[in-house]
């Protein structure tokens, strides 16, 4: 296969995944949340159990007027949704879904560094939106976003570092090549810390203090309308895809499954990602929002020590094995 075609095809596939998976998760959230609350959720759009609800939402958003407040920092305001969304597309490029060269958008040697650094950029979008909106609620939301990023980026990095230590590599396919089943109990604390910190960074309930609609309207997104607002929402769901995919790759063994059929590796990856996405929705429905101080306390007094303990454990076991 010639190179140009190969690259185009890979980019196209990643782009299609980027556009469809967040919608699938969004629709699943509609239905799962509804049934967990004893409701039915969307039933009309598309005819069969409202499968096209998010398509209809998209059409609605596209029709709305794109308003920029008079006092806003115009260019930054308009740029913010792209900054929030695009990093997740880049991260998706680096997540391997199956063994070998063919099942990853682009093999990056410093995979973990790349992925975590780029994911951190995504939060900048909310920060820019909050600052540029010229609105006190947006500013509050943006500052809360910044505080949350500072608090949760650290345990997330530490938990990821533990896996990198265990595997002896920072390349994502490299980590999966080195994966053994007993890593699961070994790294379980790190997995939970990584997942929880990731949730907090995506500002998903119960960590949605920055967009707490009952007190600061919609945080940094208050002034946004139409497509730009939809892009922020899409970024949230793309973030779920990326977080679940990364947790799968780093902690749950990615393409390794109990029935280790080589051709079905990507099925295992997708299955684990889907289960994690369900858990994300489940947590959202179940738990109430954490207060700002509780949120900070959880990170600094629980997640950071836990991730440090995980690193210590990883180091000790690693030395003992050798």
């Amino acid at each position: 296969m010639n190179d140009a075609l190969d690259v185009t095809l890979r980019l196209l596939i990643v782009f299609v995944v980027f556009l469809t998976f967040p919608l699938i998760i969004g629709q699943t959230e509609h239905k799962v949340m509804a049934h967990m609350q004893g409701r039915l959720g969307p039933m009309y759009a598309g005819g069969f159990h409202g499968w096209a609800q998010l398509v209809a939402d998209g059409v609605k958003f596209a029709q709305k007027e794109d308003v920029v407040p008079a006092g806003a920092d115009r260019r930054i305001f308009q740029l913010a949704p792209a900054v929030a969304l695009l990093p997740y597309l880049l991260v998706l490029l680096a997540i391997p879904i199956g063994p070998g060269e063919g099942a990853v958008g682009e093999v990056i040697d410093a995979g973990i560094f790349f992925v975590l650094a780029v994911m951190g950029v995504g939060v900048l979008g909310s920060l820019m939106a909050g600052w540029a909106s010229a609105n006190k609620f947006s500013l509050l939301g943006g500052l809360r976003t910044a505080a949350q990023l500072l608090a949760y980026e650290l345990p997330m990095l530490l938990a990821a570092a533990s896996v990198a230590m265990a595997a002896g590599t920072v390349s994502l396919p490299g980590i999966l090549d080195a994966f053994e089943w007993w890593w699961l109990p070994w790294q379980i604390v790190g997995a939970i810390v990584f997942f929880v910190a990731g949730l907090a960074e995506l500002q998903r309930p119960p960590f949605d203090m920055p967009v707490a609609d009952s007190e600061i309207i919609f945080g940094a997104y208050t002034e946004y309308t139409g497509l730009r607002f939809a892009l922020f929402l899409l970024a949230e769901y793309a973030g779920i895809v990326v977080l679940c995919g990364l947790t799968t790759v780093l902690f749950l063994g990615g393409w390794h499954g109990p029935l280790g059929a080589d051709g079905l590796g990507w099925v295992w990856t997708l299955l684990k990602t889907a289960v994690l996405a369900f858990i994300v929705i489940w947590l959202r429905v179940t738990y109430p929002r954490l207060r700002e101080d509780q949120l900070q306390k959880l990170s600094w007094t629980l997640l950071v020590p836990l991730s440090l303990a995980q690193i210590a454990l990883t180091g000790v076991v690693k030395v003992v094995i050798q």
Partner: peptide, 21 residues
């Protein structure tokens, strides 16, 4: 308590919803 909360939502999901169409 956290586990109990998860159990409640999961149980509700398996039951028939009460929505009248």
């Amino acid at each position: 308590g956290l586990a109990k909360g998860l159990a409640v939502t999961l149980r509700t999901m398996t039951k028939r919803s009460v929505t009248a169409q």
